[in-house]
Simulated assay, not measured.
Amino acid sequence: MRPIWKGAISFGLVYVPVKLYAATERKDVKFNYLHQKCKNPIQYRRYCPYCQEEVSLEELVRGYEYEKGRYVILREEDFEALPGGEGHNIEIMDFVELGEIDPIYYDRAYYLAPAGGGEKVYELLKRAMEESGRVAVARVAIRSKVTLAVLRVAGGALSMSTMFYPDEVRDAGAIDEMHYHVELSDREVEMALNLVNSLTAHFEPRKYTDEYRQALLELIRDRVAGRQVAEPVRPEAARVVDLMEALKASIEKAKKERGQAVGEVPGEGEQEPQKDRRRGRRKAAGEG
């Protein structure tokens, strides 16, 4: 792999020279748009309708539209003069518990590798984070953009996930449909817990595959080979109206798929203590 960025991690007066690598890659099946008439790829041009000519990359500038049709022009030197815009640093601000960070803040993932003889100080930081069980919240400047990030140990290396700022995360309370009110019975909650227990397993990433992409690639291979492709038959799912019936059916389906006996419920012995705790909380609240 080729690094996409070089810089340094700084915490206190310690600097760790690092290289940045992409930790993930999209494997979406890519298509080109073709002209239906001649089957040739369509070209996308940088075209100025005012000058009626194509524009090269060297002639492009970045403009912020502050009013309709009016722009403020910013050039590279303007971005470099901004705080953090000129640096190639990952500045650690705090060490926190990983569980305190809501995953909704995560954006893109990267690996950080030691660079320029920084193996020892890199290993020192990695070991300190492993033994403390902490992750680092940092500020990073990449390509004239300063963003938040979290550093943690993953797969034997330091990884970095860029993050959204709090004002970039939308409030779920702004969704009208979330202002609902329903009543749940203890039996319904208990059945839902049984369903969760029936579907509980250890997280094994390799068992989750992109079935849609696999089917799409198979379809493309069949078309290339000139074979006819049969359309799969999709059975219509029966509509279950009653909530309790839906929960029961879901539990039975989960048990059958996982080869469990129909009468067994994982964690069944834990249900009564949970129920007793709920009763205790209601008594403490004066509900009787």
Rank of each mutant, 00 (worst) to 15 (best):
E168D: 05
H181W: 13
D102S: 03
G69M: 04
G263A: 12
R62L: 13
D94I: 14
R258H: 08
D28T: 11
I92A: 01
C48P: 01
G63W: 01
F164N: 08
D167W: 08
L151Q: 00
V72F: 06
Y106P: 05
T147S: 15
L151F: 03
E97F: 10
Q228V: 15
D102H: 03
K145I: 11
E270K: 14
V140E: 03
Y50G: 15
E130F: 08
E183K: 06
K207S: 10
V18T: 01
E58K: 10
A138E: 01
A109F: 13
H181L: 14
H181C: 11
L98W: 10
R279K: 14
P3M: 05
N197Q: 14
I220Y: 05
P103I: 03
V182P: 07
V96Y: 03
T209D: 15
R45Y: 07
R282K: 15
R70L: 08
Q228S: 11
P266I: 02
L57I: 12
L82A: 09
V18K: 00
A23Y: 01
K126Q: 07
K30L: 13
E65C: 03
V182R: 13
D222T: 08
G280S: 15
A8D: 04
P3S: 12
V153T: 05
E231P: 07
R234F: 15
D186W: 13
S132G: 10
R134Q: 10
G133H: 01
G12K: 01
R70F: 08
R213P: 05
V262P: 11
M163Y: 04
P49K: 06
I4L: 06
A157F: 11
N89I: 14
K253C: 09
L151I: 11
Y208R: 06
G12A: 00
V265G: 06
G156P: 00
E25A: 10
T24Q: 09
P17A: 01
T162D: 04
K68V: 08
Y111N: 03
I251E: 00
A230T: 12
Y165K: 14
K253I: 13
R239H: 12
P232K: 02
A285L: 09
R139I: 13
A254M: 00
E59S: 07
R234S: 15
A249R: 04
G99A: 12
P205Q: 04
A8N: 04
G99P: 08
K256Y: 06
R152E: 11
F95T: 02
V16K: 00
I4T: 07
V18A: 00
N197F: 15
A22I: 07
I42V: 11
L74K: 05
V146F: 03
Q43T: 11
G226A: 03
M163E: 04
D78A: 00
E268Y: 10
D78E: 04
L34R: 04
E188S: 04
A113I: 11
K37D: 12
E177K: 10
E100T: 10
L195G: 00
D171Q: 05
L60Q: 05
L98Y: 14
L74P: 07
S198M: 11
V61A: 06
N194G: 15
G133D: 00
E270W: 14
E91F: 12
V240D: 00
T162G: 02
G280E: 13
G118W: 03
A128L: 06
E76R: 10
Q36M: 14
A81W: 06
